[in-house]
Amino acid sequence: MASIQVRDLSKVYQRDSQRIPVLDGLTLDIPDGDFVALMGPSGSGKTTLLNLIGGIDTPTSGQLLVGGTDIARLSGPALAKWRSRNIGYIFQLYNLVPVLTAHQNVELPLLLVKMSGRERRQRARTALEIVGLGDRLDHFPRQLSGGQEQRVAIARAVVSDPELLLADEPTGDLDRASGGEILDLLERLNREFHKTVVMVTHDPHAAERAHRVFQLDKGVLSQ
């Protein structure tokens, strides 16, 4: 279950003596298996909301239930464990480890799970085959194109079989063709593998792939 329930959620950053409100009393429901796009101008709080849903940041007030877990109440180590089991995160700049091969990058999340080395290698290979990179297992990130790097990042996000995928501008650094392939892949993961996808994007074409699009402006949400 990866349904997301956001109730009266606020986030305020404190810079020296200055209070910077980013999200202001947000309420939102994303059912299990949904594909949602978050849009809005820079500084509107899209990435902050994504980070809160992913347990990367903590809310100032309000309630945030992900899969029934009130993640605002989880402490550091528990939150890290929860993330490793429930969240697949896809970054705009891929964030692959440059000194590890595609296969080793994808294996990383599985190091946190009790699993034999053989099973780990097999699952990483399967994830890479799903994203169409079964023939690039031993390539290092520098030997891959941007689109291929992002596909490796998606394989890394899904290898531990989380129910929720969070994507922060996944096509933001790619040309239109490569971006299209990534969106195809996200759609397929949503449709065939029933992953709940929450995607931050500036690109209206990318947002069209989502079932629903939410607009954020100055911390306030509209659909």
Partner: peptide
Amino acid sequence: TREIAMLLVLGFSP
């Protein structure tokens, strides 16, 4: 910095 943050996001403990 980003690489380390990514590892923390994946769930590796500090």
